[in-house]
Structure formats: C-alpha cells, structure tokens
C-alpha cells in the first residue's frame, strides 16, 4: 500500500457500537492525519478501548464506517456501486494497514522475541526467513531490545514484552498504530521504558492513536488529546488546551483525579 498523503491516515464516521442493549459508542467521528499522535483519555467504561477495537474490526461496529488511508475497513465496494461486508479473508488484508498493541501484550509464547516480530514479515509480507529476521532484529533494537532477541516471552519482563509487541506492530509498517492502554498491565517501575519506546517512535513520524491513563506522557507526546465519556468524544484539542483549560465540566472533573504537569506559563 502506497500511503496517500492527501487522505487522512484514519477516518472514523458516525461509529456506534452496542453490546446487546448497552450502547458503548455513540456516533463517534474522528480523523487522524499522517504523522499525528492522538491520545484518548477518559474513565474506564467510556468506550476508549471499544473505539480502538472497532477501528481494527476486532469488534464489529454496530453502525458507521472506518477508513484507513482512504480505504474502507470491513466493507467492499461492489461493481454496482453498493457496499458489502468484507469476507474474513478480505478483512485480514485490510487490517494490514492497522497495527494494534494490546494491554496484555498478547505475544506468541511459543516464539522467541525475534520470531514474534519476524513471523508477520514472513507469513504475511512473504519475506524470506533471513531477511525477515534481520528486519525484526532492527525493529527490536529500535525499542532497545537488541540483547534479548532469542528470549521467549516468559523470560522477559512485562515492559520488555510490551516493547516486543510494539516492535511486532511497527515491523508490519501499518498506516496507523492503535495502542490500547499499553502500560496498564505493567508494574509501575516498568511503565517508563515502554512510554520511552513509544515516544521515540512517535518522534520518527509514526501515526498513532493511544489510549492511556498516563497524563504526563499524554501531555508530552500528543499532538491532540481527546476526552471520551459515555461512548462519545466530549472534548478535543492540543494538550495545552485540554489539560490547561478544559472547556467541558466533565473533562475538568475527570482531570481533577490526576496531577498534570502544567505547561510552563509565561510569567
């Protein structure tokens, strides 16, 4: 896929999701430009994770559309100009534009760190074994794991595992990467190394949507912060706007739970 600089990396239109009678997402609209880092904050149950899962179609939206690089996800245009649901196989191909980093890492326990990253390159991208492993090693070095290539997930700390998972996603060179609370399952002392890895990648032009509770990280890394509540986007803007002078009462209430480093104000 050749990235088309004109179309946004991600476009979400009127996305809704209900589990039975419980509505989790309500008409969410979202656009992410190429190279942009969007951080989504909000209380648990506000629909942040479901939003990411619906974008990647790990969960099927009840209604609404998702486009990555201008191409629809989960649907196909038919010759008579109508739409039909993509088959599982077509969806697998469409998903290659979307990377996903899970809260619980979900590394493949039977493979080494190197092969966790290389398997997609080999089996999905069709690279030769040697080339795939060389490329995988490069990506693991980018997340500071050059010394752990041959270790299995069980031999790695949570922070290391999550960095392997990040390398696995990055290696596929997706248009956009979705991070679903990447540090929530980690011991406090391991959070930093994962955030540092994400920070480095964000500075290299990676396009991403990051769901997180790490407010100071959000403050530093985000081009745009989105606050969600009850399945809807309540407020969005630059970190300075959302953290510094939130317009909505709900945002303000939510942010009162965190100590957020205030940006340096002009005296």
């Amino acid at each position: 896929m050749k990235p088309d600089m004109l179309s946004p990396a991600l476009r979400v239109k009127e996305l809704s999701k209900a589990f039975g009678t419980k509505i989790v997402l309500r008409n969410v609209d979202l656009e992410v430009r190429k190279g942009e880092t969007v951080v989504v904050i909000g209380a648990s149950g506000s629909g942040k994770t479901t939003l990411l899962r619906c974008i990647s179609h790990l969960e099927f939206p009840t209604s609404g559309n998702v486009y990555v690089d201008g191409r629809p996800i989960g649907r196909l245009a038919t010759s008579d100009g109508r739409w039909k649901t993509a088959s599982e196989r077509q969806l697998a191909i469409q998903r290659r534009g979307i990377g996903f980093v899970f809260q619980r890492f979900n590394l493949f326990p039977h493979l080494t760190a190197l092969d966790n990253v290389a398997i997609g390159l080999r089996r999905v991208r069709g690279m030769a074994k040697k080339a795939a492993r060389d490329r995988a090693a490069e990506h693991l070095r980018m997340v500071f794991l050059g010394d752990h290539l041959t270790k299995r997930p069980a031999e790695l700390s949570g922070g290391q595992q999550q960095r392997v998972a990040i390398a696995r996603a990055i290696a596929m060179e997706p248009i956009i990467i979705l991070f679903d609370e990447p540090t929530s399952a980690l011991d406090p002392e391991l959070v930093r190394e994962v955030l540092d890895a994400i920070r480095v990648l964000a500075s290299t032009g990676m396009t991403s949507v990051i769901v997180t509770h790490e407010m100071s990280f959000a403050h530093q890394v985000a081009n745009r912060v989105i606050y969600m509540d009850e399945g809807a986007i309540v407020e969005q803007g630059t970190p300075a706007d959302v953290f510094g002078s939130p317009r909505e009462t709900r945002t303000r209430r939510f942010l009162e739970h965190f100590t957020i480093p205030q940006p340096k104000t002009v005296p």
Partner: peptide
C-alpha cells in the same frame, strides 16, 4: 483469545493463525 486477536492484528489469514499460532500452543 488474545492470541487469535494478536495474529489478526498483524493481518494473518485464519489458516495461518491455526497453523502458526494456535496449533503449536
């Protein structure tokens, strides 16, 4: 289930998920 989801997230087909991810485990 997270194993299947991770495999899907890197774009694997169903048969690949079975062969390379689920069966070995």
């Amino acid at each position: 289930r997270g194993q299947t989801e991770a495999a899907k997230s890197i774009g694997m087909f169903r048969w690949q998920i079975l062969t390379y991810i689920l069966l070995p485990q």
